[in-house]
Design a protein around this nucleic acid. Structure first.
Lengths: 168, 168
DNA sequence: CGAATATAGTTCGATATCGTACTATTGTAG
DNA sequence: CTACAATAGTACGATATCGAACTATATTCG
């Protein structure tokens, strides 16, 4: 007995009497856990390659406005990004401070705002894309890229399902 | 001209002269963006169903120790979770404060610590699983669960690739 | 052996995110 | 028309995470 500390065996070495539903939940957990780790890895790589110290989630906002068109409300962007509106208020304030977006009152609804990409924001986006090409080139093979292309539509469907069936 | 604000067209309505590499990068972005949103959705669902206000990432630590065995170093857990060691220091302090883990010095290396699941931690894990079964049941159909089972090994391979090829 | 380097954790300050509570405006029902 | 409910956004405090700098121990190498 060399070890002073008790180290418990992994659970799969014990006999299992779990119900089917628990087994399914474990696979769901494993899936979401993997998704979380990939997200973590991608964020770290992105954070290191984005110019001007821009946070990956803020870059996602710029990219969203760039691809899908600007002039959207903060709440609409928040829904697309799956973050709360308080988070969006903060993120937009940061991006506005950097001069990448402008936030204007919605002329058709005095409660709301509309978010626009500035020229500087578009320049930033182009520069960011260029710099991240190299960063991702270091960690991605053609095989992995094609794997991601294959998986993307499945993830999109799953996301849409989760989004439309979420609680509240 | 009813609109006072200029709203730019989505980018895909403009002619594209982008290089192949940029197109690939856009798909990679789309993939990681989808992963990030799914992660966000899953975290929100989990956060609402975990007992005792435990953060999803902290539950992931407990689940990791439960499944793969405890008596691991904080750094090793941090590597598995893809978070920094400073984050792990904080997370373990929280879990220790709740009585779910104990942190003991490593008898074979005075620099290190070893993390053990307490009985309370195991009880918490079982209770958490039970409570989240219902929560996920509300937002997941059998079709989505089987989709996740199908995608899991692909994501795992991708994660392993990213992990082994990451910068530094 | 002894100095330089590497590894394991912690401390500290910054920031992204969340939930609660608030204001302001819009929509709706009596 | 007025009161109530819904919607858009902000203010504030709490917390999870990060990076830089630090301490302590271990390893390596001359």
């Amino acid at each position: 007995m060399s070890k002073q500390q008790q180290v418990n065996k992994p659970k799969n070495e014990q006999e299992s009497k779990a119900a089917v539903s628990e087994n399914s939940v474990m696979e769901v957990f494993a899936f979401f856990n993997e998704v979380g780790i990939i997200n973590q890895l991608a964020s770290t790589i992105l954070a290191g390659s984005l110019p001007d110290g821009v946070h990956p989630s803020h870059f996602a906002i710029i990219n969203h406005l760039y691809r899908l068109g600007d002039g959207r409300s903060p709440l609409r962007i928040a829904a697309a990004m799956q973050v709360t509106k308080t988070t969006m208020t903060h993120s937009l304030k940061v991006l506005e401070g950097k001069g990448y977006i402008s936030i204007k009152p919605n002329p058709e609804d005095a409660r709301g705002k509309l978010v626009f990409l500035s020229a500087g924001g578009r320049q930033f986006r182009d520069k960011a894309i260029a710099q991240t090409v190299a960063a991702f080139g270091h960690v991605l093979s053609d095989e992995q890229v094609s794997r991601m292309k294959k998986l993307l539509p499945e993830l999109t469907e799953l996301r849409q399902f989760l989004d439309s069936n979420r609680l509240q």
